[in-house]
Each structure stands twice: as structure tokens, then as C-alpha cells.
Amino acid sequence: MTVLFYQQASRARLFKEYKEVQREKSADPDIQLVCDDSNIFKWTALIKGPSETPYEGGVFQLAFVIPEQYPLLPPQVRFLMKIFHPNVHFKTGEICLDILKNAWSPAWTLQSVCRAIIALMAHPEPDSPLNCDSGNLLRSGDTRGYRSMARMYMRLTAIPKKGS
């Protein structure tokens, strides 16, 4: 009974976020949030790689799975594309970000999570790496190595198709 009630609460909140996203579509040109047609607990986001990073020019797809206790629990977010970043698991796309774990606050929204992920892309945290290779490159001071690897994977996976 209470579970159903909570699910309804999170559904209501997600629906309001959806309306807000529709209303303020142009407010943030770097983020596009799309809700699954049939399930409001599944979202996809397209985010643009921040400028002056190796991810610039790429468009990255994120998958959101939202728990029924949302917004008390954070959404589960992962990259759908391969990305070479110290805090993103290379195979699963899992993201290591404090606000997606213990520092989550119900006042955050899906949109703000996207913004936090863009900020994480611009400022990797090599001391808590999910991708050790990437973290080690940065920690050993090989910024150039990291940047070229990251750019290579960005070009391989996240560049939008030509002619469409």
C-alpha cells in the first residue's frame, strides 16, 4: 500500500519534471532529456561534451533508471557510449559521482544530474577512478596521453553521424 503510494509520489514528481523539461527546452542547449514513451521511470539524456575538453564535439547518451523511491533515492545513470574518463567504467558506463551515491539530495533533478555529469566530464577526479588506465594517466601527469585517448574514443563513439 505505502509502496504504491510512494511510487505514485515519484511518478507525480517525474511527470512535473517532464513538463518542466518540455517548457524549458531551450534553457540548456547542452542537455536534452527524453522520457521513454511507455515508462516514465526510464529516461535517456543526450549531453554535449563540454568545450575545451577532449569530449568537445561529442554527444553522449546517458540512460537513467529511476527507482520507485525517487527523489529520496538517486536515479541510476550510466553512459550508453564508450567514454574514456577516470570516473566512468569503460565497459558498463557506470559513473562514480558522489551526488549519485551518498551526497544525493532530493532537491536535485534529472536536469541538474545531467549538469553535474557535464561538470564531471570537464573535471575528472583521478583519485577515485573507475577506469584505472585513465586515472593512472592523469595521476602520472600524462595529460596529453589522457586527452588523446579520450578524444580518440569520443571520435569513435560520440561523434554524430554525417549527412543526417
Partner: peptide, 14 residues
């Protein structure tokens, strides 16, 4: 991009 970047930076106080 530049203003956006600033904003995202300020988001986490980076």
C-alpha cells in the same frame, strides 16, 4: 559553450 561551461563549473564550485 563558454557561458555554459562557467555555469557548470559553478554548479559544483569546481
Amino acid at each position: 559553450d563558454p557561458p555554459r561551461d562557467n555555469a557548470t563549473e559553478s554548479l559544483l564550485g569546481l
